[in-house]
Design a protein around this nucleic acid. Structure first.
Lengths: 209, 209
DNA sequence: GACGGAATTATACGGAGGTTTCATTCGGGC
DNA sequence: GCCCGAATGAAACCTCCGTATAATTCCGTC
């Protein structure tokens, strides 16, 4: 509860150079950021870790998986932490590739402490933003899971703007049945108005076309 | 009508090196891309130009405004063309800055023709995507402009999910008046259902909170 | 001063939404 | 065989939405 970036944000450092790991750890601790350091991507992956807010600071050149390769794999592993890359022997194509892949920043060693701190601040802000976007969405997805197949059909057509009788015609059902399903959808999704349901459909990516 | 990127996509080249301008023009014409070249940012800005689809290919080092400075100014000038930067004497911080500012790519001279073509293809795709997003939005904004102040208030509350009588209470009006305004909103916005109106509100950034 | 648009409200009516109650059918699962 | 949830639907009832008609007020323009 020390900074504006929220509770328990952790900077995960992955670098094979123990001196740099220590230096970075000290730097981040000096601004009250929790820090955990690893000597390799493999060590990071094999160590149990809470999925709290944070960001990754990766060295590009490491034995085993390079920082760039590791970055490319993260999404597939379900890890969405923002990434900051650093390198002592980089080139422009490398940095461009990293930025295209979504890196927050790409720093060349030696870098100024303040540049690293700025990058981490930006990364934590991005993570916080993603998390707040995700939080509401997760509850919606969970609620959506509880819908039956029929209810999902009705959900789709209702949020597309069709009237009950039109949906009834499409699905070859009676209007009263649509009303029942529609009521179930509203209750299960915890929507208090059609407008809210439409917004949920948007957030869930349930487009009419 | 020669490529999948739509009608009349133009590559705008801005570089003070006339040899490179000619080479790039030839390259783009070889794949049926319309091309216009300029020797400086100022020349580009002072030349009348249709606002059709396209992208910009900028040299970083130019007399007058540099490619990076020019890129930074584009949004303020209402120009949203995707930017590809190229340089013969760049460094990593420069490329990172450009990518952070939204550049599609950052190429170092000499580059392979195919790399430039790939970058342009990506840039045109990004432009086409932005345009298709913008097209519908522009019509909505125009329609929204025709709404009176009262109608906009009602629009806001309706798409927030409030009932007519609740809106009437908030605005200290009778329910029938809300119904009238609501009808006007639907007609002026050309929305055929409440769901459609809610989606428009989302697209227009008219959030309840 | 006349005209028109915006805003307001009332009455009335028809259509659409939503819930409750009751009832039937169909598949699983114990 | 029995129970349960999902799906279906009919009847009744109430609320909400939407429009048409008509009227009043205010404000700015011609």
């Amino acid at each position: 509860m020390s900074r504006r970036d929220g509770p328990a944000a952790t900077v995960f450092i992955v670098d094979d150079d123990s001196d740099l790991r220590d230096a970075l750890s000290g730097l981040f601790r000096s601004v009250d950021l929790a820090t955990t350091a690893y000597a390799s991507a493999a060590e990071f992956l094999s160590t149990p870790r809470s999925d709290g807010p944070g960001c990754l600071v990766l060295d590009v050149r490491m034995p085993g998986l390079s920082g760039l390769d590791f970055q490319a794999q993260l999404a597939g592993l379900g890890i969405h932490l923002p990434v900051i890359l650093m390198t002592g022997h980089g080139d422009i194509p490398m940095s461009v590739r990293a930025m295209k892949a979504g890196a927050v920043d790409f720093l060349t060693k030696p870098f100024r402490d303040q540049d690293m701190l700025d990058a981490v601040t930006a990364a934590l802000a991005r993570d916080a933003e993603r998390r707040s976007r995700d939080t509401g969405l997760q509850a919606m997805r969970t609620a959506y899971e509880t819908l039956t197949a029929r209810e999902r059909e009705v959900f789709l057509h209702v949020t597309a703007g069709l009237m009950n009788k039109q949906i009834a015609g499409l699905l070859d059902l009676s209007e009263i049945t649509i009303k029942i399903h529609r009521g179930h959808v509203m209750r299960k999704m915890e929507a208090r108005s059609l407008a809210e349901l439409v917004r949920m459909a948007q957030a869930l990516g349930i487009a009419p076309d």
